[in-house]
């Protein structure tokens, strides 16, 4: 098991205000980790910190050499800009290779090959020349995952990935992620509020409410106090 990323007692905040306090967590090769919590619980802030977009105000983040070189495969939430963006699927996917390029201006044949391979891997090879804005929500998501895999296939970080997907696309999505995780050993770190589905998929969970309420295996989490309150509420909502 290779260590990919380790946070030790990290705090994150904006202008004297702490958004995340004292989080310790470890991501190893092949992990499937989920970060849950209510809105404003600091999930997104922690995620930005892990991606290196925000400096920790306290504590220490250790990143493996491999991730430092290639960057982290990141699936951000889809933005307004992308809805009518003129770009082919291939243009989007190959932009994932950018982190490895440094300052060299053009993509090499190897990188084109990698982009093509990742498209095939996600079953969207035939969409290569299609226009990104004309795809369905689920197809767009696959394209963006392929892009993230071009950056690295060690760790995939997903930010609220199921927002805006229809129910059947959501199930497809979870199956795809599970396949990448189980069969290809891609470590998954997902921020989500879809707890009902996640308890069936993820192996480890971090429940955040500014401070971590729970960090550990999913089996233990389901029995914990934190989960009972959180999941209990959800189930009542569902009824």
């Amino acid at each position: 098991m290779g260590l990919l990323l380790r946070c030790e007692h990290v705090d994150f905040g904006y202008e004297n205000q702490d958004a995340v306090i004292d989080v310790s967590l470890e991501v190893n090769t092949g992990d499937y980790i989920c970060i849950v919590g209510e809105n404003g619980s600091g999930k997104s802030t922690l995620m930005k910190g892990i991606l290196g977009l925000l400096k920790p105000t306290a504590g220490h983040i250790e990143v493996s050499e491999e991730l430092k070189r290639a960057g982290i495969g990141y699936l951000p939430q889809q933005t307004e800009v992308q809805k009518d963006f003129p770009a082919t699927v291939f243009e989007v996917v190959i932009s994932g290779c950018l982190g490895k390029r440094g300052n060299r201006p053009f993509y090499s044949a190897k990188e084109r090959e990698a982009a093509r391979a990742n498209l095939e891997r996600l079953g969207i090879g035939e969409l290569r020349k299609s226009c990104f804005r004309e795809l369905s929500g689920g197809q767009k998501q696959r394209v963006l995952i392929a892009r993230a895999l071009c950056a690295t296939d060690k760790l995939l970080v997903l930010d609220e990935p199921i927002t805006g997907l229809d129910p059947s696309a959501i199930q497809d999505f979870y199956q795809l992620i599970r396949k990448l995780n189980r069969e290809e050993n891609v470590a998954i770190l997902m921020v989500s509020h879809d707890v009902a589905n996640i308890v069936h998929h993820a192996d480890k969970i971090l429940h955040l409410k500014q401070k971590p309420l729970f960090w550990g295996n999913m089996r233990d989490y389901v029995k914990s106090q934190a989960a009972r309150e959180f999941l209990g509420d959800r189930e009542e909502d569902n009824i």
Binding site: L51, G52, L53, G71, I72, Y74, P76, T79, V81, Q82, F85, A87, V92, S95, G96, L98, G99, R147, A148, A151, V157
Partner: peptide, 11 residues
């Protein structure tokens, strides 16, 4: 296309 992804890959 995507500022946050570009940032995360080190641009």
């Amino acid at each position: 296309f995507d500022e946050s992804f570009a940032k995360a890959t080190g641009v």
